[in-house]
């Protein structure tokens, strides 16, 4: 699905943030990405989400070399990947329903074609009663679930989550993890970047550990 081969990344003329990174995310797999702060988790996620290009190495996404794709092809590729940001990145002037349906809207689907899907998904994440409210009145957990719903509404092949439990209490973190696991059961590959060891200990999944710009695989 996504394959990194000896990938390196540096910002400007600074030191390499990521070095010789090689791994492969298979379909329907589940991974944690972890490491100390500043180890490059977000940079790695950005590379996986195709919003950055590596300084060196090869990133292959769904069988295509990322460096050969033009902007629109990258956008098409990005639609196969859902992302849950640590800071949610919701649009405050749109309702929860509109935020969740945004990925379908930008693909040019008429609203009536996805309305029921969005409603069902929102009920699934228990936001059915919050469809017409705006993000600024939601709690952190509700925003997180909105962000997750937005990430999965396009039925992505891969879901990337950056510190999805960073703003919620442990109980809700556990529930969000179950949500990801359920999505994984439905066929979506899940990659969660976190430094929450408790969260990772709750679920046996391989971990891609970042250390000093390099990635190592560890078994739980």
């Amino acid at each position: 699905m996504i394959r990194f081969e000896n990938v390196g990344l540096r910002y400007g003329i600074g030191p390499e943030i990521l070095r010789n990174v090689s791994f492969h995310i298979e379909p329907q797999s589940f991974y944690f990405i972890s490491g100390p702060s500043g180890a490059g988790k977000s940079s790695l996620l950005n590379l996986m989400f195709l919003s950055m290009r590596p300084t060196r190495g090869l990133v292959t996404c769904f069988g295509k070399d990322m460096s050969t794709l033009n902007r629109n092809e990258l956008a098409q590729m990005r639609r196969k990947i859902g992302v849950v940001f640590q800071d949610f990145r919701l649009l405050d002037h749109l309702t929860i329903y509109e935020n969740v349906s945004l990925p379908l809207r930008v693909r040019g689907f008429p609203e009536h074609t996805y309305r029921q899907d969005v409603i069902e998904l929102m009920q699934w994440v228990d936001l059915g009663d919050h469809m017409h409210v705006y993000p600024n009145v939601l709690s952190g957990g509700e925003k997180q679930r909105t962000a997750i719903a937005r990430a999965v509404i396009g039925q992505p092949d891969l879901l990337l989550a950056d510190e999805p439990t960073g703003n919620v209490d442990p109980e809700l973190a556990a529930r969000l993890l179950r949500l990801f696991v359920e999505l994984n059961k439905m066929g979506t590959s899940i990659v969660i970047a976190t430094h929450d060891h408790e969260l990772m200990n709750q679920f046996r999944a391989p971990r891609l550990m970042l250390d000093d710009g390099e990635v190592y695989l560890t078994e739980p």
């Binding site: 070095r19 995310i25 329907q28 797999s29 972890s34 971990r207 190592y216 695989l217 560890t218």
Partner: peptide, 26 residues
């Protein structure tokens, strides 16, 4: 870190063949 870690040299796919199929995953 927690648990036993597996180190793989650079250039090698760290998790190649980790899962055999989706059924095993689930």
């Amino acid at each position: 870190l927690d648990g036993e870690q597996i180190y793989v040299n650079e250039g090698q796919f760290l998790n190649q063949g980790h899962y055999e199929n989706a059924e095993q995953v689930h």
